[in-house]
Amino acid sequence: MSVLELPHAAARDVRLGTVAELCAFVDDLERDAAGELVVEAGEVRGSIYIEHARICWAAAAGLSRRLTELLVERAGLDAGSMEQLYRACRDARVPLGEYLVGRGVVSAGDLRAALAQHTVESLRRLTGPQRSGHFLRRRRAGYSPRFTFGTAELLARSGAATRSEAARLAEAEMVACFSPEGWAAAFVRSVDRATPEPIALYGEAPAEAQALARLARWASSALDLVAAFSAGEPLVAVRLPPERARAGRESALAFRLGELVIAGEAGAHCAARILNRRARHRASRG
């Protein structure tokens, strides 16, 4: 794979105040676009490679050894063994992750998780107040979608990085409430952000962060409306129109879990399952 700069490619300035702002830029790119977002802001330097509206990798100054550390953790190797593997993969001209999976040192799932964590840490390093980057169009390099990331997943992982306890709680709740055919996201509302921030995903969620933002706005708006005439922790369930519904995803749901808003699409019986779960909780409390 090689990433070649296109001749006469015009650079485009991109605001990178937050990871959400970066994700919005990626979502707005044409589906077949590819390019590199270069950040140079004093000591904060790095780049983000984007292809097919997915982030393929991100690298930030100061984090060059981080991916190796994450892989070492997951593989349970010592630094010396990892160094040997690193040299071997360099000689074979194979990307490290691919080499480790090929040799059975780490599973594909472990590699994906390490890549995701490294990408999120890099994005968080590269974004910040008054930060911006230059987007340079490149030829597509053909990265496997298996090891690249939609903006929805990265934004939720970024949110979870600062709210790990709430993210764990939300994940457990979504597993208990939603069926495997459905999908859901958990959000927190911050006073300084117009749109609630995702911190956890469940199921086959949309790849684009902007779809999560629309779901969050719908859920928040519906729950705010309901708060005017209903006390406690209401559950809102809306049947999807026939043109939107599919098997296992016939309804849109929204409810609160403490400070969190959980929303998603699920089967027709999911709401009944949630109500039954709540009734059992009430009964167990006497």
Partner: peptide, 16 residues
Amino acid sequence: GPGSPDAFVASDAWVH
């Protein structure tokens, strides 16, 4: 958002 055929809200006291 498209109009939905039906919906409900279940809260501590009521079902709408």
